[in-house]
Amino acid sequence: MATQELILIDTLCTHYQVEVSFFDALDTMGLIEIQVIEQTKYIPQDIISDLERMIRIHNELNVNIEGIDVVFNLLKKMETMQKELNTIKNRLNLYESDL
């Protein structure tokens, strides 16, 4: 992965006003993947939207890291179910249009 696709964790800490330990805890829980290059920690740019959700859940709702893990697992399941529901609706519409 190229360096320009990574964001420095120190920059995120300053921008979102959170501690590095928050990112370390998210990494430990498997919610994000920290990449270390030359002893500097980065995260991939493509997970910023999920990261912002995690920070909001943590700060605004006072949810701990374990709670964030539960919330994100439920959100992922809901997204999967929504995709399945859309697929089923599309199939149903296809069958109904053939009638």
Rank of each mutant, 00 (worst) to 15 (best):
C13K: 07
I43K: 02
T87F: 12
Y16F: 15
N73C: 06
Y42T: 04
D10Q: 12
K41I: 01
L31A: 04
E19S: 09
N93C: 02
A25N: 11
M29E: 09
E60T: 03
L75W: 06
Q82F: 05
L85G: 01
I7V: 14
M78Q: 14
Y16S: 04
T11M: 05
E38K: 07
M29L: 11
L75I: 08
E66L: 12
D98R: 00
Q35P: 01
I47A: 02
Q17Y: 07
M29I: 03
R53Y: 11
T40Y: 05
V18W: 05
T80N: 14
H58Y: 15
E5H: 12
Y16H: 14
G67I: 12
K83F: 01
Y42D: 06
T11W: 02
E96L: 09
V70D: 14
I57G: 01
L12A: 05
R56A: 03
T3F: 05
D24M: 08
G30K: 06
I68Y: 13
H58D: 05
M29F: 08
L92S: 01
L74W: 11
G30S: 08
N64C: 07
M29K: 14
S97H: 00
L61F: 14
D27S: 11
A25F: 05
T14N: 11
T40G: 00
G30E: 13
H15I: 08
G67S: 10
N73S: 08
G67A: 07
V63W: 00
E60N: 15
N86P: 00
V63G: 03
N73K: 15
E79H: 11
N86R: 06
L8K: 14
M78H: 12
V18I: 13
I7L: 13
I7Y: 07
Q17S: 10
E5P: 03
Y42V: 05
Q45W: 02
H15W: 04
L12T: 02
L85M: 13
N59G: 03
H15E: 14
